[in-house]
Write a protein that binds this DNA or RNA. Sequence first.
DNA 1: AGAGGATAATGTACGCCGTAAAGCAAGCGG
DNA 2: CCGCTTGCTTTACGGCGTACATTATCCTCT
Lengths: 220, 220
Amino acid sequence: MTARPTRGRGQHAGLSAHAILRSAIRLADREGLGALSMRRLGTELGVEAMALYHHFPSKDALLDAVVGELVTEATAAQPPGDDWQAALRGYGLAFHASLTAHPQLVPLVLTRPAVTSGNLQVVESLVGSISAAGFAPERALDMVYAVGRLAFVHAALSTGTDEATFVRGDPTDRLGAISAEDYPHLAAAAQASIGRPLTYRLEFAVDALIAGFAQLQHRP
Amino acid sequence: MTARPTRGRGQHAGLSAHAILRSAIRLADREGLGALSMRRLGTELGVEAMALYHHFPSKDALLDAVVGELVTEATAAQPPGDDWQAALRGYGLAFHASLTAHPQLVPLVLTRPAVTSGNLQVVESLVGSISAAGFAPERALDMVYAVGRLAFVHAALSTGTDEATFVRGDPTDRLGAISAEDYPHLAAAAQASIGRPLTYRLEFAVDALIAGFAQLQHRP
DNA sequence: AGAGGATAATGTACGCCGTAAAGCAAGCGG
DNA sequence: CCGCTTGCTTTACGGCGTACATTATCCTCT
């Protein structure tokens, strides 16, 4: 150990909370959530595991911070357009895109409430746009929630197996391919959706959602 | 040990995969996912941890089976109505209700692809109904996905903290209450949504989604 | 009926994990 | 120059998943 010859044992400023966070995200991206242990993260930073406890009180707190970092990054730089439909759509797609950049970490985001100030700022702006279009603020928040959650869950599940995988073959998979006899409609649908980009389903859902909202607008 | 005096050491039929599953679900419901260890589950069943490995090859496989059990239970008994809108709505709400019965386990469902035959059956039936209403099967599947995922993510996040919690007070919470100066629209919206039932937001989103779908139907 | 395998459980052990506690080297203010 | 604070290491503990070996019962076949 002490493979850093330029510094003695008690040097300062070797680590920072933010550097740890970034390293944790990189590690999880590369080797999965399971590889994200304190010891592993320590060696990744050239440091013993216990050193991390000088910057975070527990692993749980560290993971909370990772989620915060991620959500901040995901909701950053939202152009505040005045067209609520475009804003909402952009929010959903951008959120999704940012989350899918770190697919391994999405389950983490699910389990801890991540309310950062950047996050709140974006939601505030969206709720403002929507309210300005004549919706009750309560409704506006529901709308933002719906789109955000849809984007989120698509990010979480898009890496998993879906029907298209089953139909494409590879019968060593869990249940084998979907048989066209047992599930005719499903097989046809899955067959048709092979090869579509990952965002297709999300865009469809978000657009339908927004269409539904717009319809609501004209009948108070 | 061997607190069961009526049977010797190698008796059969002491355990079954299904009994283990139910016990695992009960344990996790009661004490959280963290308490669901092989040793703990073993003692819960009056058995050593390694005994479980005769019924499941690994803990991971056991968790997969738990998810399967859960999803099967959640999608069971869907009345196959011929009204696609009612069917879709019912599917979403029932799915959500079943999942929220085991809030601790929802994060588990997120991380493993759960495609059970019961599951496929329900989706098949829904896709059938929707196709019969004139939608392309591919679209029908997208619609089922959208509703299912919305229900799922609402179940996953409904136990977490949302904006209403912040506004209600308790400034010891992560960021403290939402300040009405910094986030006027958000504060108003959160204030207004205090006290609503948990399913309210989901119902709103599902209804909007279905309205959007229906609109699509009239413009091919 | 007796042999032999299959089955279901145990016991032991290994290498991970998160983290509490204590120690130890540098830098800094008095 | 002393001693406190800061950043890191060392050591240790209990719990985890599970590989491996063992044992005790039941089922089947001759």
